[in-house]
Design a protein around this nucleic acid. Structure first.
Lengths: 214, 214
DNA sequence: GCAATAATAAAACGAACGTTCAATTAATTC
DNA sequence: GAATTAATTGAACGTTCGTTTTATTATTGC
């Protein structure tokens, strides 16, 4: 046999990407062989090489596009710097909605960095840094404007990103909570984390004040 | 050649464990071959099988012992349920100090779950659940006592654990911050997150504030 | 110092790996 | 409907994998 009836390059490539994301997210990049991936697609291993020159290039493509889409989603959702609290809220919500909708791709992007060669690793890390810089900027601007209390924007940005990315570890759709509810709860926690004005808790009537325990 | 001069089972096993944690943390379980591990130890691959019957059993041993040590460290650090805020503080600090000191082992425990067979996976997850249950208990008790404001203890526990475990992603010793300082900052953020009474922020008095722009 | 045992090397096993290549067939173009 | 192009197969390449077996040497106990 050779070319199969109904075969179509575009469809095959899409099927390869989807199967690759699912398999790699579940079993890990190293544990997924080209043969296994091909079998999932319903094709022979050699056919994969018509679409991706190497296994690593396939991984890299998945990760790069995931990061680019994340950044694009944020650019579309960004309400601009006028209101820091609204901007932070938009960031948290966009992040959670995006990641929950792409659980597997997120897992791949977060777990398989070590399987990339230095050049490709750098490229992905640059995209990641671009995204994280957005959050740092929000925190700095908001702190300067008095909307937040953030004593270390870089550290706080990492803490928030890890907290909100962690959703995908435990969240499963069609369970207890909807994506909307989860986003709400993480939004609330984030606002408390940066001590956002307007999100004051009832406790501060007596206020022992900033406990920073240096 | 066969047995080498100065060879000692205990030392070899310790060397295997250490090398395995380092290599697996850096390159991933699947990417580390028994030959490569053996080379790192300075031994032939066959020698590894005197200490661990299979590669997976080696991984499982590393993960199980890491979790058991984490739980034991918490039991030793636990100040008891009298003061919820103090207990949560102890939990956060113990977690961060423990994980920073064992960055590689933590990476292995967090990233290689998927390489375990079902039986061993269940065993590790049970230990993990035991640990997480501790934090949920602290949050519930504290919320019931009015020390915290937590509307969803299970979700909040996951958020906190992911936030404080994330330290190992970016933290490097002998850099900007000491472990102590990092633990302090995460402690402060955690207390805000649960809206701990006595941790009120000064913001609501005048609203402008310390921007430290790290 | 001799027997017993512990620790390792060396070689080999079949299986699986990523990748390449030539052959073959389906779809498209004119 | 012939020529061209697109899509895929099937077989094969050399390499590496986890693991086993057997032989050999160092150490230990008496």
């Amino acid at each position: 046999m050779a070319r199969t009836i109904g075969s179509d390059g575009e469809k095959t490539e899409a099927a390869i990407r989807e199967a690759a994301v699912n398999l790699i997210a579940r079993h890990g990049y190293e544990a997924v062989s080209m043969r296994r991936l091909a079998a999932e697609v319903g094709v022979q291993a050699a056919a994969l090489y018509r679409y991706f020159p190497t296994k690593e290039e396939l991984l890299f493509t998945l990760m790069r596009e995931h990061m680019e889409e994340l950044i694009a989603a944020w650019r579309a959702a960004d309400p601009g710097p006028a209101d820091s609290a609204a901007r932070l809220a938009a960031f948290v919500r966009n992040h959670i909605v995006f990641h929950v909708a792409r659980r597997h791709a997120t897992h791949v992007s977060n777990m398989e960095l070590r399987s990339l060669s230095p050049v490709r690793l750098t490229a992905v890390l640059r995209l990641r840094a671009t995204y994280e810089k957005e959050l740092r900027g929000i925190l700095r601007t908001g702190a300067a404007a008095g909307a937040f209390t953030v004593d270390d924007p870089a550290l706080t940005a990492m803490a928030i990103i890890q907290m909100i990315t962690g959703v995908i570890v435990w969240f499963r759709p069609d369970e207890r909570l909807s994506v909307r509810e989860v986003a709400d709860k993480y939004h609330t926690m984030t606002m408390r984390l940066v001590a956002a004005a307007g999100h004051a808790e009832e406790k501060n009537v007596h206020a022992h004040d900033a406990v920073r325990a240096g």
